[in-house]
């Protein structure tokens, strides 16, 4: 019973992290069909933004204020990644729409440059971010089952981000324009939507969410210049499994991979668990090649 609870919680916790990372990708990849390999580096930028915020708080503010730095770090990470995403879109991504494989290669190059930049600025070794004291400890559910506050906080953060994304995409004017451009670009342009602006904004928002993910990752361990590369492929798998173009799919994809991963790792070893998850994904794609939630289309070459 205890084991079951603990594994379930672990599964959901892993899923929430995967989801937060994949959410930004679901937007840039799912909605815009741009393969952003630099997504992992935007996560890394978010993480380092948190690190810098922490250092500023340590230097400038009294110690009693320190616990609050993390609350500020979340929007700061979002904004920094947002701005960098915007710059990236203006200088590079806009030339690569409609060429997904090329965008993959070019953004991989960007990723290399960003990683090396981080190495030059912050040094190659990992740096630690001190979590605020109110996140230490955990919630005791029953004897021997403790849910760490940090994990709970991440789950809550993901839920809130997801809710805001939902409001933005499905309940706001800007979101409606975004969906219009993704579904039928020419028609949207004819109706007066500035597709250039929508593209730039969408990409920047996807990048900003990667920044939030980076901020959350600082709670789990030290951060380094190659932080993003650990997560990027898993995140892509989530999007592929979930199906492209719908956020619901991404949620289920993350839950599916997170929970199966935990279960397999519990039954076997960490490395064998990963193999089994991959086999499961490929097997699943046999049954539904377009992922869990697919956009229905009559187009042949979509």
């Amino acid at each position: 019973m205890e084991v079951l609870f603990l594994q379930l919680f672990n599964g959901i916790s892993v899923s929430s992290i995967l989801l937060l990372i994949a959410l930004g990708l679901a937007i840039t990849f799912g909605l815009m069909n741009v393969i952003n390999m630099a997504h992992g580096e935007l996560i890394m930028i978010g993480a380092y933004s948190t690190y810098v915020t922490q250092n500023i708080f340590m230097d400038l503010f009294p110690e009693s204020m320190f616990g609050w730095y993390f609350v500020l770090a979340i929007p700061v990470s979002f904004l920094v990644a947002f701005v960098i995403g915007l710059i990236l879109e203006f200088t590079l991504i806009r030339f690569l729409y409609g060429r997904p494989l090329d965008s993959l290669l070019a953004t991989w190059g960007v990723a290399l440059v960003l990683q090396q930049l981080a190495r030059t600025i912050f040094g190659a070794p990992n740096v630690g971010v001190t979590s605020p004291s109110w996140l230490n400890g955990g919630l005791t559910v029953m004897d021997g089952v403790v849910f760490p506050y940090k994990r709970l906080f991440i789950i809550a953060l993901v839920a809130i981000t997801l809710f805001i994304m939902y409001l933005y995409i499905y309940r706001s004017n800007a979101g409606r324009r975004m969906r219009a451009v993704m579904q039928n670009r020419d028609m949207a342009a004819c109706l007066g939507v500035s597709t250039r602006r929508v593209d730039a904004l969408t990409f920047a928002i996807g990048s900003g969410i990667a920044g939030i993910a980076g901020c959350a990752l600082t709670l789990l361990g030290p951060i380094g210049p190659s932080l993003g590369t650990y997560y990027i492929v898993d995140a892509f798998m989530v999007v592929v499994l979930g199906g492209v173009g719908k956020l619901v799919g991404t949620v289920f994809g993350a839950l599916g991979i997170g929970v199966t991963n935990t279960v397999f790792e519990y039954w076997t070893t960490a490395s064998l668990g990963k193999v089994l998850v991959f086999v499961c994904i490929v097997a699943f794609l046999q049954w539904r090649p377009k992922g869990l939630v697919a956009m229905r289309t009559r187009q042949l070459d979509s």
Partner: peptide, 23 residues
Amino acid sequence: IKGVYFTILTQALVIITTTLFIG
């Protein structure tokens, strides 16, 4: 399953093979 999806699957193949070999 082609294009980008295939590419991502091959990348996942790399990840799991290296983890398996290290493990």
